[in-house]
Design a protein around this nucleic acid. Structure first.
Length: 422
DNA sequence: TCTGGGGTCCTAGGACCC
DNA sequence: TCTGGGGTCCTAGGACCC
């Protein structure tokens, strides 16, 4: 196996830092992004807010209790995406082997370009300079022989929260080849990739708390407690053996939208209307990426937080809103009937499409089937066939005149807005 | 102090086919 | 006949990641 050098680059408090960048008056103040609605959670927070105990994924109400003086802001995803695009461009100037994770971090495999670019710590320092210069934002860099080690190293490189202003971090942390096992041993098992709260609890029951504890256990014991797949992987990770490659262009597996309502919904009509809105959005996202999928899944979370999914696979890939809406509404009906869910109240609704096929599939199928034969395959395929072309025309109008120019009609179709441009 | 929204991957059972 | 085993697809749920 070739020796690898992996960099993990992670923006510091990304959303919150972008908000401070766009509004310098916020500098030095506790800033919390997300959690603006009564039901939200914290998406990102400044180091000043962290000093009060605010953390990502914390319920908004808790964050307010921790830090009543914090500035709470709603997320501006479009803005963060734009900054993220420039962030990725900086990284791709170094190597094409960039694997973004979310908007604010990425792995780089620089094994092949060390002679060209110099020592990894210098590459890391260069990235930090460029990100600071071009974006006005801070990031931290970890270097190691695998993704696992590089990611933990970048965490170690981060600033530390404290009252007043944050303590500066190292910026770049390198874990030397051969030192992985020693580096990992004292860390809690939850630091290892793929080990979440559920597995941490199970491991604690047999006295395993750190990566070192794991490393001293026979693989068989781990496998018997966690199953073959997870047990094997954990044994390897604990000694720093992480074979995951840096993959630049991993294909998308599913596209979806979900929404938690401010207040639980009980009305079937209102829920069906939300399914349509989300299905139209999912269709648009699929067409934007030239994708279509055969499996539609809806997710229903009741007021008591119990969550069910219902899915159906149809004969042809779908990317048209009306077709996705039709399947989604049918699934919604069955999910609500069971367990009297409508009466109990619905907290969250989601629509997603998976079983994706790549570019060109939809056009090719529409051509193969012809205008009339679509209906023969079934009502959903018929909807897809009749709306495929119209949806794309509508996308074109949206692209030229803005999102408001065309919208979904109540019948499940698409119509031009009377007041819209053109 | 009740728990977001975007995803990925794994498991397990049943249908169906050879 | 009371009985195979493997492969693939589908569905549902759950753990996990940022």
């Amino acid at each position: 196996v070739q020796e690898r050098t992996v960099l993990h680059v992670d923006m510091d408090a990304f959303y919150a830092s972008v908000e401070v960048l766009d509004n310098p008056e916020l500098a030095g103040r506790p800033v919390v992004v997300g959690g603006s609605s009564t039901r939200g959670v914290v998406a990102s927070c400044s180091y000043q807010a962290r000093a009060y105990g605010v953390r990502a994924a914390m319920p908004a109400a808790t964050a307010r209790a921790c830090c009543p003086d914090a500035v709470f802001l709603p997320p501006r995803m479009a803005r963060y995406r734009a900054v993220s695009t420039r962030f990725r461009e900086i990284l791709r100037d170094i190597t094409p082997l960039v694997e973004p994770i979310g908007l604010d971090e990425a792995f780089l495999d620089v094994s092949g370009c060390l002679r060209l670019l110099g020592r990894p710590e210098d590459i890391g320092a260069g990235i930090r300079d460029q990100v600071r210069g071009a974006l006005g934002l801070q990031c931290s860099v970890g270097v190691g022989s695998s993704k696992l080690v590089a990611k933990l190293a970048s965490r170690d490189a981060k600033p530390r929260a404290c009252l007043g202003h944050p303590e500066e971090g190292a910026g770049v942390v390198v874990v030397a080849r051969g030192a992985e096992r020693r580096y990992l041993a004292p860390r809690p098992v939850g630091d290892l990739w793929g080990i979440g709260p559920a597995t941490v609890t199970r491991l604690a029951q047999v006295g395993v708390r750190t990566a070192g504890d794991v490393a001293s256990l026979p693989v068989g014991v781990l496998v018997s407690h966690l199953g073959r797949s997870l047990g094997q992987r954990l044994a390897e990770l604990a000694v720093g053996d992480d074979p995951r490659a840096v993959v630049p262009g991993a294909p998308v597996r599913s596209v979806g939208h979900e929404e938690t309502f401010c207040a639980d919904l009980h009305d079937l009509g209102a829920l069906a209307a939300r399914v349509q809105v989300m299905a139209e959005a999912v269709g648009r996202a699929l067409r934007d990426r030239n994708l279509a999928g055969r499996t539609v899944t809806i997710k229903v979370r009741s007021s008591d937080f119990t969550t069910v999914t219902r899915s159906r696979t149809v004969g042809r890939p779908l990317d048209a809103g009306p077709a996705i809406t039709a399947v989604g509404r049918e699934l919604l009906g069955t999910a609500l009937e069971e367990g009297d869910r409508a009466a109990r109240g619905v907290r969250l609704l989601g629509v997603s499409v998976s079983g994706l096929s790549g570019p060109g599939t939809v056009e090719q199928l529409a051509f193969d089937l012809g205008p009339a034969s679509g209906t023969a395959a079934g009502p959903v395929e018929g909807l897809q066939a009749s709306w495929a072309a119209v949806s794309r025309v509508a996308d074109g109008i949206r692209a030229r005149f803005g999102d408001g120019a065309v919208s979904a009609g109540a019948g499940g179709g698409v119509r031009a807005m009377p007041g819209g441009a053109g």
